[in-house]
Amino acid sequence: MPLIEIKELSKVYGFGDATTIALDEISLSINRGEFIAIMGPSGSGKTTLMNILGLLDRPTHGEYKLSNQHVERKTKIAQAMIRRDNIGFIFQSFNLLPRLTIIENVALPLAYKGVYQKRRLKAAEVVLDQVGLSDKEYYYPNQLSGGQLQRVAIARALINDPSIIIADEPTGNLDSVSARVVMELLKEVHELGNTVLMVTHNPSLTRYADRIIYMHDGNIVYDESTAVGEVPKRVQKAVEALRTSTDDDKLADVSAMMEEMPEQLSIKPVPKKSKSKSKSKTKVKSTRKKGKKK
């Protein structure tokens, strides 16, 4: 029985002409103990998917079963409780509360569960020890480095023994060394039997995952299981292939369109555009000269 099962899940923003389809009837099932990396360019819908899986957002259509329970239409209170008990979040920008100490930050989810402070702090001690920060318990977040903060965030995500850990670009704000430490820690967390769902832009991080999902325009393009430690060639290829449609390519498409039907667009064709470009270049030069004179 899969831990997470979504069926024809859609998320639509806006109305009429401004409608954006963030997720387009996605179906996906995730088993307990998987480490999934979700990749894709900005706007591909991966963050929306994470928010819905993390019960921070609701789908427009479709089903979402967590531990064989429909959760997509639960009340906000019920969803908050599921978040509290079953989901651990790790954010790109750590999102620790600056006025609380490290140990209080880690213990905070238990506070909302109604656990007494003593027991809460004890539990926090245990997980802080797991992430190797037991000597920083009474520091404040602004006294720690980015990598340490992210380890604190991992500890906070672990404290409720969640069914799934959702990490949104966990290394996005870190230097490569700290990023490695954090990823190794996430790997350990996974090896302890936790289910991890990670969004990343960095293809090399997919080596930690045992399943890679590639999203584009609200659809899942690839969904592939790999051995841990391997960056699958298909992903690399996919990244390269999809990278070709950059902004420059889109501009090229537009200019091609304009060449085909200049009248309808009532914009003057390309040659004149190139002239204006050269003009602008000369302008730049002249300003430089002026700058030198000054």
Partner: peptide, 16 residues
């Protein structure tokens, strides 16, 4: 606002 967002994400209900 951000603090409220964090608290909600880690499981605080609106009532809390």
């Amino acid at each position: 606002t951000r603090e409220i967002g964090i608290r909600k994400a880690i499981g605080a209900t609106s009532q809390q």
